[in-house]
Design a protein around this nucleic acid. Structure first.
Lengths: 226, 226
DNA sequence: ACCTGAACACCGTTCAAGT
DNA sequence: ACCTGAACACCGTTCAAGT
């Protein structure tokens, strides 16, 4: 919409906040989170480290912006008419894919999420579906919590294992699981996700039968003895 | 069993690896993970920073040992005869409590777990229960994965929110959720855990009906259209 | 066996000053 | 509006040398 005259006349190029986030995401994917320092990022941009602090409050806020970029595809154009459990599986798979799309993506997102610096990726979508279908918003939140924390934690573990494997293979060590790495193995992700979705489906059906218990209040019952 | 003559004669006290881990756990609880540096830890022990590297390989391995200490209570003396879903709930509650027992406990454990430097806290117990009951070990692993990643991720988020709240309250800000903090609120933990346990129970019953499908292979079916 | 002293190669962040 | 230069207060880790 706005004409791009940001470099009219050939003056030294100036950066926007968006450029800094772009460069950070690019550098993350190249060198990984442990080597993503503000000083390396400044180098990458051809700028002094202190210049970054004009565009960004601090490193944590920058990583939050990077997290939001990584999570972008999770909330893009959804098909209408899904049930809560179907939407939950869809969101989970998109989240998993998005985290795997960048090096150390799950670790970056995990901490931004814990610090509350980025929007939780599943809640808005599942709340919308619940509203459409007349399900309790509290149930949507419960499912969103279960999905989000499981997927992020699992993918974090999976991503570390893969880069460790890749390092071992590159160093000429015992390339034990090299095929699994290059094939993008499942590692049990789908099985555990199926289990959680089964829980969502069961809970959904139970509430449809007895809608008076649909408040979302936790039960905290001691499990029944066999 | 062995007599403690480690300081016989009043020489300068010498430290063991266990002492270093003890001190790290203590310092973690006092100052939090961001301020737990090797240099502060050395100070805390009355020793030069370089001395730590005689007892411990590096900081990550030290944090892994701290994680193992935090997770100790999760695998202590279990009652026999539980079903897989009941044992899963028990392990989840123990894990949650253990992580909350130390400042930033969930964050420390989360990264040690992702790096594969500490034993996953739920798997051994659930595998043992599965063996007792004739359930597939793959199912025990699936439930253990779902529980572990959910509980660690949720508690990480919960712990950050609580310390942010406590900081806001201490700084005299709007002490909005101070009662929830001091009361140790649930934040939806139990509701989401109930959902996952419901998934475990459902899967368990389904497999008991059709034991030929008990291999633990993921389904990856596209969800049925309504 | 356990620790000191000194060094190496880094960090994130602030802030006056420049253009 | 955007960036430089210089500084502050730190890091994790290594390694020869001491006792």
């Amino acid at each position: 919409m706005i004409a791009d005259d940001s470099n009219r006349g050939g003056r030294a190029p100036r950066r926007s906040r968006g450029d800094v986030v772009d460069a950070a995401l690019d550098l993350l994917d190249r060198v990984g989170l442990p080597d993503l320092s503000m000083r390396r990022l400044a180098d990458h941009l051809g700028v002094q480290p202190s210049a970054l602090y004009w565009h960004v409050e601090n490193k944590q806020q920058l990583l939050a912006a990077v997290s939001a970029r990584i999570l972008g595809p999770v909330s893009a154009d959804h098909a209408a008419g899904a049930t809560l459990d179907v939407a939950a599986r869809d969101v989970a798979v998109r989240l998993h894919d998005s985290l795997l799309a960048y090096r150390d993506g799950a670790e970056v997102v995990s901490s931004s999420l814990a610090l509350g610096l980025v929007d939780p990726p599943a809640h808005a979508r599942l709340r919308a579906v619940a509203a459409e279908r007349g399900d309790a918003p509290a149930l949507a939140d419960t499912i969103a919590d279960a999905i989000t924390h499981f997927v992020v934690g699992f993918t974090f573990h999976q991503q570390q294992r893969r880069s460790a494997d890749a390092w071992g293979a590159a160093a000429g060590g015992v390339a034990a699981s090299v095929e699994r790495v290059s094939a993008g193995g499942d590692d049990g992700f789908t099985a555990a996700l199926d289990l959680i979705i089964a829980g969502a489906t069961t809970t959904l059906l139970r509430r449809a039968d007895a809608p008076d218990a649909a408040s979302g209040a936790p039960t905290r019952h001691p499990a029944p003895r066999p």
